[in-house]
Amino acid sequence: ASVAVIAAGTQGNIFATSALRSMRFLQILRMVRMDRRGGTWKLLGSVVYAHSKELITAWYIGFLVLIFASFLVYLAEKDANSDFSSYADSLWWGTITLTTIGYGDKTPHTWLGRVLAAGFALLGISFFALPAGILGSGFALKVQEQHRQKHFEKRRMPAANLIQAAWRLYSTDMSRAYLTATWYYYDSILPSFRELALLFEHVQRARNGGLRPLEVRRAPVPDGAPSRYPPVATCHRPGSTSFCPGESSRMGIKDRIRMGSSQRRTGPSKQHLAPPTMPTSPSSEQVGEATSPTKVQKSWSFNDRTRFRASLRLKPRTSAEDAPSEEVAEEKSYQCELTVDDIMPAVKTVIRSIRILKFLVAKRKFKETLRPYDVKDVIEQYSAGHLDMLGRIKSLQTRVDQIVGRGPGDRKAREKGDKGPSDAEVVDEISMMGRVVKVEKQVQSIEHKLDLLLGFYSRCLRSGTSASLGAVQVPLFDPDITSDYHSPVDHEDISVSAQTLSISRSVSTNMD
C-alpha cells in the first residue's frame, strides 16, 4: 500500500485504499475450498504439459491467421470504412471474430473485405477451437489413466503375492535341489530340531500304542527276528556328554522351557516337584528354603522380579524323601529317536503342500481383483469380450473355409453374387472337401465294379455249361463312374476274359 501511495501521489490514498479493500473479495475463495484444490491444478498442469506441443502448434497457427486476416482486412477497409482507421481496430475485429465472440461493433463494408473476412474466419476458427478439443481429450485420457492406475494399485499386491507364491512353489520342487534360497528361508522360521524330535516322538508313541520308545526297546525280541524299528541315535539331556547330531552343545531358554513342560507332561506320578524357592531380598537368592510367592517384596526391581519368575519355571527341586529312583531318572531322560535326515523329507513334503495351498489362494485372490467394480468397468469388459468373440468367430470361419475348400476369392465371389465353382473344380482343390469328394467317387466306382462281377458270377453259375458261358453278354464299365481312378482293366474288353475262362473250363471238362 505504501508503494502504491508513493507512486500515485497524494491523490492515490483513496485509490490504494479501495484497491486493498477490493482484495477482500479473495476471501470468498476460501468458501469454495480453492486453497485446498491442489490436486485439480496439478491435474491441469499435467494435461497442459503432456499436450504442450499440440497446444503450441495450434496457438501458433491461429496467431498467424489472426495477424494476416487483420492486416488484409485493414488494407481493404481503411479507405471505405471509418471503423478500420488503424491496424489496432482491425486487430480487435480479428480477435473478436476468430474467437467466435462477434460483438458486431465493427464489420467490413466492401465486398473484398467481406470475402477476406469469411475466408479467414473459416480457416482461423478451426485453429482457435483446437486447444479446447486438445485439453478436453487430454483430461479424458488423464482421468482414464488415473482410473486404471487405481485399479492397478488394487491389483499390484495380489499380483506380487501370486508371483511370489508361484516362485516358491517352483523352487520347493524336490527335483530342483539346486534352488536353496527358499529352503534357507524356511530353515530360519521353522522350530528347532528338538521340537521336531518331540513332535515325531509323540507320533511314534501313538503308533506304538502308547508305549515310549524306551519301553519298546525293553520289550523282549526273539533271536533272529528283525527289529520293528531301525537303530537310531540316542540323545540324552544337555547335561550328559552325548547330543543329537546337528545340535549345539548350548541350550537356549526356549529349549529349557519346552524341556520343563515336556517333563511335566510325562505324568505327576513319576515326577514330584517341590515348592519353588524364593529369594528373600533382591540381592541374594536362598535356594535351600522354600517360601511362598506372596511374600515377594514390593520394592524389588523389574529385573529381580523377572529373575524370580524364571526361577519359578526353570529351577524345580525335589524333596529328599520323594527323590526318584535311578530307573525313573533313566525313563525321564530325553530320548531322541530320530535324526535330521529322517525328519527333513517329511518336513519338505509338508512345506510343499503348504506352498501349493498358498499358490491356489493367491491365484483366487488375484482373480477376484479382475472383477469389474462399476458400470464403466462392466461396459469396458463387455466390449473387450465382444471384440475377442468376433476375433474367435473370424478365426473359426477361416478354418471352416479351409476345411470346406472355400477360399478368400470364392468368398468374395459369393458376396458379389457370382456363380460358384463347379464340382470338377471342387474335386481338384487341395482341401478337405476335395479329398472327401475324391474318396467318395472312388468308393462308388469300386462298388459298381463289384456289383458287375457278382452279377457275372451268378449268371455263370446258373448257366452251368461252357457254351452258355461264352454266350453271356458282359456289360462294359461306364468310364464316368470311375472318377479319376483309372484301372488298367477298364480299357480292355471283358469278353476276352470271358473267352479265356470258357476255354479253360472246356479243357478241364475234356480232361475229366
Results as ranks from 00 to 15, higher is better:
163 I>S: 13
163 I>F: 06
163 I>N: 15
164 Q>P: 14
166 A>D: 07
166 A>P: 06
167 W>C: 13
167 W>R: 03
168 R>P: 08
170 Y>D: 08
171 S>A: 00
171 S>Y: 06
171 S>F: 02
172 T>N: 02
173 D>Y: 09
173 D>G: 09
173 D>A: 06
179 L>Q: 11
181 A>V: 04
182 T>I: 13
239 G>R: 06
242 S>Y: 08
257 I>F: 10
263 Q>L: 04
268 P>T: 08
278 M>K: 14
280 T>A: 08
286 Q>R: 04
287 V>A: 09
294 T>P: 08
296 V>G: 14
297 Q>L: 05
301 S>T: 12
316 P>H: 11
319 S>F: 10
321 E>D: 11
322 D>G: 15
330 E>V: 10
345 P>H: 11
354 I>V: 12
357 L>P: 11
362 A>P: 07
366 F>Y: 03
366 F>C: 01
366 F>S: 03
367 K>N: 12
367 K>E: 12
367 K>Q: 06
368 E>A: 13
369 T>S: 14
369 T>I: 04
370 L>P: 10
372 P>T: 08
372 P>A: 10
373 Y>C: 05
373 Y>S: 03
374 D>E: 07
374 D>H: 02
374 D>Y: 07
374 D>V: 07
374 D>G: 09
377 D>N: 03
377 D>A: 11
377 D>Y: 08
379 I>M: 12
381 Q>E: 12
381 Q>L: 14
383 S>T: 07
388 D>A: 12
388 D>E: 13
389 M>R: 14
389 M>V: 13
389 M>I: 12
390 L>P: 08
392 R>G: 05
393 I>T: 08
393 I>S: 07
394 K>Q: 07
394 K>E: 09
394 K>M: 12
395 S>G: 14
396 L>R: 12
396 L>Q: 09
396 L>P: 08
397 Q>P: 07
397 Q>E: 12
399 R>G: 00
399 R>P: 04
402 Q>P: 08
403 I>S: 02
403 I>N: 11
405 G>S: 08
405 G>C: 07
411 R>W: 08
411 R>S: 06
412 K>M: 05
412 K>N: 08
414 R>G: 10
416 K>E: 03
416 K>N: 03
418 D>N: 08
420 G>R: 10
432 M>T: 13
446 I>T: 08
449 K>R: 15
449 K>N: 07
453 L>P: 05
473 Q>R: 09
475 P>L: 14
490 D>E: 12
503 I>F: 13
507 V>L: 09
507 V>G: 15
